[in-house]
Amino acid sequence: MKKVLVIKSSIFSNQGQSSKLVDHTVSSLKKRFGDIELIERDLSVMPIEHLTAQTVTAFMAEDSADLSIEQQQEVELSNTLINELKSVDYIVLGVPMYNFTIPSTLKSWIDYVLRVGLTFNYTDTGPVGMVNNVKQVTIATTRGGLYQGTPKDTQTNYLIDTLNFIGINNIDFAYAEELAMKDVDEILRQSFKRIDSLIEVV
């Protein structure tokens, strides 16, 4: 059975347009593979605390006994998120654009899973990713305007660079743009078609 990690980062939870694209992606994966095992994180429902100096210190500590209870909990959460990441075949990310960037809740998830010695290592020849189980990532991103392929699209390269850094290289995007300017239903329909075409070949 295929295992899928689903991450929604819309502040509107399941009502967000990016979440609708995520749900369609999951449905498409079910049609492609039959039963799948889902790990779902809705970051608007269960947000991850933003990175602090205390958190970084905890992540780098060799002995957890010296950490405060709060720091131990942060390390435990990070370990859980990393274990989820390392256990799945596919990842589906819902990423709306807020003020030209990704949601801060998604950035927190990234900060908790990028840990030296666990998801990447530094070597004499540079950093090496340690997450080699993920076959494909589908990123459903929604924008009010038209940004794909322009300097204002700060999401695409950032997410590619971040995932590549930990060893994940097979990344596809389904964009739903101009949602504040044109017919939303039609834009979503076109994005659904794009998602279906991506899933057909995973």
Results as ranks from 00 to 15, higher is better:
Trp109Lys: 10
Glu62Ser: 11
Ser9Thr: 01
Ala61Ser: 03
Phe12His: 14
Leu163Lys: 12
Leu106Met: 06
Asp89Ala: 08
Leu159Pro: 00
Ser9Asn: 02
Arg189Asp: 12
Thr125Leu: 06
Ser68Gln: 13
Gly149Met: 10
Thr105Val: 13
Ser191Ala: 15
Thr150Tyr: 05
Ala65Met: 05
Ala53Thr: 12
Asn83Glu: 15
Ala180His: 10
Thr141Ile: 03
Leu118His: 15
Glu62Thr: 10
Leu188Asp: 13
Asn164Pro: 00
Ile199Asn: 11
Thr141Phe: 00
Ala53Lys: 15
Lys8Val: 00
Ser78Asn: 07
Val88Phe: 02
Val202Ile: 11
Leu159His: 09
Ala65Cys: 06
Thr80His: 13
His24Asn: 13
Asp63Pro: 00
Leu159Phe: 07
Val113Ile: 15
Thr150Asp: 08
Met60Gly: 08
Asp172Glu: 14
Gly167Cys: 02
Asp111Met: 11
Lys8Asp: 12
Leu163His: 11
Ile48Gly: 05
Ile110Lys: 07
Phe100Asn: 01
Ser27His: 08
Ser10Val: 03
Gly145Gln: 11
Leu163Tyr: 14
Phe12Glu: 14
Thr138Lys: 09
Ala176Ser: 04
Asp66Ser: 06
Glu84Val: 03
Thr55Pro: 00
Ser191His: 09
Thr125Ala: 07
Glu62Arg: 02
Thr101Tyr: 02
Val131Asp: 03
Tyr112His: 14
Ser19Cys: 03
Val92Gly: 04
Thr80Val: 01
Leu188Cys: 01
Arg32Val: 03
Leu118Ala: 11
Leu146Thr: 04
Asp63Glu: 14
Glu200Asp: 15
Asp196Thr: 09
Asn132Phe: 10
Val202Phe: 04
Gly16Trp: 04
Asp153Leu: 02
Glu84Gln: 13
Gly167Arg: 12
Ala61Gly: 10
Phe100Ser: 07
Asn132Ala: 01
Leu114Ile: 08
Leu188Asn: 06
Ser18Leu: 04
Ile102Gln: 08
Asp196Trp: 04
Val113Pro: 03
Asn99Met: 01
Glu62His: 11
Val56Lys: 05
Asp196Ser: 02
Gly16Lys: 06
Met1His: 12
Ser9His: 06
Leu159Asn: 06
Asn164Tyr: 14
Thr52Ser: 08
Leu146Ala: 03
Val113Ser: 05
Val184Thr: 15
Met181His: 06
Lys30Leu: 03
Gly129Tyr: 14
Gln54Leu: 07
Thr25Tyr: 13
Val131Lys: 10
Thr125Asp: 15
Val184Pro: 00
Ile171Val: 09
Arg32Leu: 03
Glu186Gly: 01
Ile199Lys: 03
Asn170Ile: 05
Thr138Asp: 09
Ile69Asn: 15
Tyr112Pro: 01
Val75Cys: 02
Asp111Asn: 06
Ile11Asp: 10
